[in-house]
Write a protein that binds this DNA or RNA. Structure first.
Lengths: 213, 213
DNA sequence: GTCTATAGCTGGATAGAC
DNA sequence: GTCTATCCAGCTATAGAC
């Protein structure tokens, strides 16, 4: 097995770890100065190299963002793939939302890069994006186990969960003001879905009103 | 009355309208190039003046953002102060949320400036902020008419509404994918609040589970 | 108040020696 | 691959004539 390591493999490994060190320095910096505040000068200094050396590993600044996006998407997929123990299905769902919260709040810059798309002129490559779409598709499958298959219910779910997260990170960072509403939100959502499943709901959008509950 | 216009008033009025023209040009530009893409060169060119002239009316770039913020906050307060006709209280609430959607989606840059706080290094002044906090306080009072007074319900409400708006503007701009979920969301929220009012809800956060509904 | 001209800085990206 | 040195473009903001 040691014999299987050719000189090419060696160089390849060196190159990969150098790239990873640069990306790690980049995460460091965006954690301090915000996602958009990353500059190649600062990045090079933090990584202990010079600016042109950065270009030996990445074609452009956006290529660095793309590598960061790929890491973030992979971490997201890994975090959400972790199985959940527990017997109460509602509680399992709550735990999963909590995990999503933990992922988002523990690294706001990562959350911003992965989910808020606020970097002007940056679009992630398909390869970097792939793990995230896989993970989101699995989330959709998981909700189907709860009988939630209608598109509007899935959209409502994403709006509710991301709304909670966004309020938490932007209005009470480090606190628990909206984190503490997770269980209540899940209960509300599931109750709503079980009471309005089926194709209709209401045929016209406003014929409910008076005597529903 | 005409006599009451002194030369000082005249100059004051000229100055105000010149400032407004610059701010109008700024709204023009951020609508095209994004909120963060505003540059004083472009702004001056669009307003038909030169860069130093801009500094005759504003101390800095952030002062321009602040003036824009003040306009946006005033427009928000005016939009939400407009009275709602209708007899069904639920329908009235739905109409108000729709109005909020209309306000946000009709000018994404304004929405971003007012509610998302994504401009690095910019904080609105208290004066510019004031109309917005007034309007939000009135919203809180309005929800109290529905019996919604608990802090956690208000937080849940803001998370739900802003979550819907954010999904709409960032994932389906110009469409109706989340706008069409407004009525359903309001129904879900009100049903939840009326079923869980009172101080308790659940004493421990996870003792619900099995036999609740 | 408005202009021309420019300072002063920071950014991404490159040339070429070693 | 890594460096020194530099280019060039963009930005905010200012100086000083008129």
């Amino acid at each position: 097995m040691v014999k299987a390591l050719t000189a090419g493999d060696w160089r390849e490994a060196r190159r990969r770890s150098a790239r990873e060190a640069i990306v790690a320095a980049a995460w460091d910096l965006v954690g301090e100065q915000g996602l958009a505040g990353l500059s190649l000068r600062d990045l090079a200094r933090r990584a202990g190299i010079t600016t042109p050396t950065v270009y030996a590993y990445f074609d452009s600044k956006n290529a660095i963002y793309d590598a960061m996006f790929g890491e973030a998407a992979t971490q997201f997929a890994e975090a959400m793939a972790e199985p959940c123990h527990g017997d109460d299905p509602v509680e399992i769902l709550v735990v999963r939302v909590r995990r999503f919260f933990e992922f988002c709040t523990s690294n706001p810059a990562r959350h911003q890069l992965l989910f808020q798309r606020t970097l002007p002129g940056f679009e992630p490559s398909a390869e970097s994006y792939a793990p995230a779409v896989r993970a989101l598709a699995e989330e959709k499958d998981r909700l189907a186990l709860y009988g939630i298959t209608e598109a509007r219910h899935l959209d409502l779910w994403t709006a509710l969960v991301t709304g909670l997260v966004d309020q938490q990170v932007s209005n009470d960072p480090g606190g628990t003001r909206w984190t503490g509403l997770i269980e209540e939100s899940v209960t509300m959502f599931l109750a709503h879905c079980s009471s309005t499943s089926g194709p209709g709901g209401a045929t016209g959008p406003r014929s409910r009103g008076k005597g529903a509950p």
